[in-house]
Structure formats: structure tokens, C-alpha cells
Lab assay of single mutants.
Amino acid sequence: MASQGTKRSYEQMETDGERQNATEIRASVGKMIDGIGRFYIQMCTELKLSDYEGRLIQNSLTIERMVLSAFDERRNKYLEEHPSAGKDPKKTGGPIYKRVDRKWMRELVLYDKEEIRRIWRQANNGDDATAGLTHMMIWHSNLNDTTYQRTRALVRTGMDPRMCSLMQGSTLPRRSGAAGAAVKGVGTMVMELIRMIKRGINDRNFWRGENGRKTRSAYERMCNILKGKFQTAAQRAMMDQVRESRNPGNAEIEDLIFLARSALILRGSVAHKSCLPACVYGPAVASGYDFEKEGYSLVGIDPFKLLQNSQVYSLIRPNENPAHKSQLVWMACNSAAFEDLRVLSFIRGTKVSPRGKLSTRGVQIASNENMDAMESSTLELRSRYWAIRTRSGGNTNQQRASAGQISVQPAFSVQRNLPFDKPTIMAAFTGNTEGRTSDMRAEIIRMMEGAKPEEMSFQGRGVFELSDERAANPIVPSFDMSNEGSYFFGDNAEEYDN
């Protein structure tokens, strides 16, 4: 993207840094990872977990959730003011799984939030270390993106479920800051804005008074975040219109849905970061690795190297396929839920299948599930090659597409044709070009129609051997075009429920 120079890199967003050079960025990201790792080690000690239990991804998720809940100030305040039966607002906890007599047992633990905050700050040299908290939120978000298709949420806001490739980060909490905003897809931002506008339509006082002023500035800020994701002048001009509207209503909703559809071809720039579970960072720190000293990046080879040398386990339900569970977590670790499966298959070195073909449910185990038949197995999170994460949407291309997802959002900077089903997408653009945004709409449609099938995206960008740390010898991959490109292809993934 041309304006790259004016933006802070995501590592800076990730670490609240002012302008830093590459070495400083690597050190501050490393410091953040160190903090998460030290916190995780301490929690495993508190909970008396064995090494194996500490490497269980379900335990990692519970521990991450506990610290996120302990620092969720708004919710904590709300819980104190609106006490609900049987919930102690000062405590947080969740299921911890232990191996007892050759069987997995679930144990519900409860801790004072104050105590968890103390352990977290102690692991982070006394700081609140917001960057580390956001990092864990993005890992949870990436896992949700890989596990669930947001059909219901899309339909509720009037969008087409086939636009799911635009929904990265749709389950990120509001408090995820600049680093969170960077990884949100165009569809996620559109959905947040539509929800806001709908509230304004239904509630006369939404934009009024002292609160209304705050609401208005939040609305304009979200519009600017979305505008910054678009790469064409016409899309940005249309966002200006939406932002400046005196009284946002149905016309703005129409414009936003139009823009979301246009992003299936004229893709937005959305950041991709490899955020790993805390149970990967903990053992690495415990083994003596100093992330701050060595430096770390979320968008280069580092996460690949770390996963190459990590042992992570997962509980497996009786009829689940461990290899499929591994694929789910591998995609989440690489922030690749909406990437082209052919690119992923090449990088991973084994075939990556669409969601609907995987015999696996989510990673988390519900409290009512029976533990008797639970097994555990090693997650295979290694890769054959590594590639640089991208934040450009890439230019655009036609490809055989599917009944489910009709476009992709690249996660890796790797040369390819970008699949999208042009006739299906263009069919949504018939007729409606009147109104105050008509010239911009016409211009956007013209650009979409001009998108050429034979153009290559990320020209000359390749993948790298894991021994090639400096990215000196790019390998331009070859793809098996007979395979499906979309992950949520004609899909039956479970729906995400809060």
C-alpha cells in the first residue's frame, strides 16, 4: 500500500510504541512475548500442572481467558453494579484439565481477579502490559475465525453469508486497541457500523446529549479505520460520505453494504499476525530463551520457528480426527482463516481442507461434555516452508469459486491468482447506482469489472525454506488448481455463540 510509510507498523501498534527502528520493534515485541511466557509459567505453578498438562491447549485457553477477564475493567465495573446470582464479580476462573488415573478430569478453578492481575503485572515488570493482553485477544479471535462461520451475524446486519472472507476479527472485544483495529476485516468494521446506525434509528437519543457526542466521535473513528483499509480513492470518498452524514440511517447502511461487497474484489488491507497460545510461549521462556534479547516478529519467520520446536497437546472428542484438529489450530496460529487453501497447503506441506470436510468441533470443551471418553493427542503445528504475512489485500483475480465463501483475504505475501467468483459478486451490483453516491458507485463498479483474471497478485513473492531466515531465496510455489480455494466452501461450520 502506498501510504505504508505514514502508518505505524503493526509491531508498533502491538507494543504501543512511538516510531521505533526494526531492532527496537523486535525487542519490544519480544518483551511482550516474554511477559506472556513468564505469566503462563507462574500460572502453571499456581495450578500445580504437570509439564504435559501445561502444554494442553484447553488449559492455555482457560488461563488466557482468566487474565483477560481480570483486566476487563468495563465488564468488571458492570458486574459490580449489576450483581447477578451466583456470579462473584471479583473472581474469575474456568475449567482446568488434569490427568488422573490414566483419565482426563475437569476441575473448575476460581481465583481472585486481583490475584491474577498481581501475577500478570509481576510477570511483566510491574506494568499492565496491555500489548500482551491484546495479543491474547487476537489469538482467540484468530481461533474463532478458523472455527466458526459468522453466517447468522452477517444475515442479521443485512449482509450476504458468502462475504465471510471479510469477517476477520469479528469476535475481537471493543477494547483491543490499535492492534485489534489493524486485524479487523472490512466486513467486521461494516458490521460494527451498521449495528451502531441501527441503534440510532431505533433509539432517538442515541446521537443526542453528552453521551451522543461520545457516540458520534466513536462512529467517526470507526469510519476512519474502515476508510484506511480501502485502497481505492472511490471507496475512500464513499467512506467520507458515510462519516460526514448528519443523521446516519438506511442510506448509510446501503452504502456500507455496497462497500463491503466491493471489497470482495477491490480488497481492503487487513493486517495478519501470528499470535500463538500462551502454552507455546511459556515452555520456550522456561527453556531459557530470551525473546527480548533475541527479538521477535509476528509477521516473519519467528512464529514458524517457534511452532517448529513446540509440543502442544489437545483434548480430542471420541469421533474427532486429531489431524483435522491440528489443521484448525495451525490455521489459527498463522492467522489464515480466509487465505486461499492452495497457498496454505503449499506452505504447510500437507493438504489443507475446507472447514466442512474437517471432523472436528471447536477447541474448547463445553462444561456439560462427558470427560470419560476424552483422549488427548499432539497437535501437528509444523510447516514445510515459511512466508511473510501481508497486510495488503493483493490485486484481484477471477477463479472458480464456491457456493460458500466467494473470495479470499490473503494472509501471506505469496504470488498467486486470487480466487473470487466474479459473476456471483457482480450480480449483486445491478441497477442500484442512484442517489448521492452514484458517481462513486459507478466508478467502483467500473474498477471491479476491469479486474483481470490473468493478473498475478504479489508478483514474484515466494515462500522460503525454514533454514532461509533472511528470506534470501524465494520459492514461487505451484498450486494444484483442481483443489478448492475457499475454506468455508459450501460450508456447515458451527455458528459462533458468545
Rank of each mutant, 00 (worst) to 15 (best):
E11P: 04
A366M: 10
A387K: 11
H324W: 06
E494W: 11
M159S: 12
A411M: 09
E449N: 10
R38D: 10
L56C: 00
D240L: 08
A427E: 07
R342Q: 03
G435F: 14
E244Y: 10
C223H: 12
N124G: 09
L193T: 06
Y111S: 01
A260T: 14
I36M: 12
E292S: 00
T433D: 00
F206E: 13
V329D: 07
R261M: 12
G282L: 08
D497R: 14
K452S: 03
E375R: 03
R99Q: 03
N144Y: 14
A337W: 06
R267E: 12
A411L: 09
M222R: 13
I138V: 13
E18R: 03
G132I: 08
I406F: 08
S402H: 06
Y496L: 15
G450W: 01
K90D: 05
S310G: 08
E107Q: 13
Q241N: 11
R75E: 08
R121W: 00
R118D: 10
F412I: 09
E244A: 01
E24R: 02
W104D: 07
K273V: 09
F338Q: 07
D72W: 07
E244M: 10
P248Y: 07
G17R: 03
C275G: 07
D255A: 03
V299C: 10
R216P: 06
L108C: 13
A70K: 09
N211M: 00
G228E: 02
F412D: 12
A471Y: 10
N498A: 15
A178N: 06
E375G: 08
Y111T: 15
G209I: 11
G17I: 05
S478Q: 05
H82A: 00
E294Y: 04
I197R: 13
L379I: 02
A131I: 00
T6H: 08
G394H: 15
M191A: 12
S486E: 10
G185E: 12
L306G: 02
S383Y: 10
A237C: 12
R117F: 05
G288R: 04
L381K: 07
S407N: 05
R342E: 09
W120C: 05
N125V: 02
C44R: 08
R216H: 03
I57F: 15
A70H: 07
R361W: 10
D34W: 09
Q12H: 00
L68R: 00
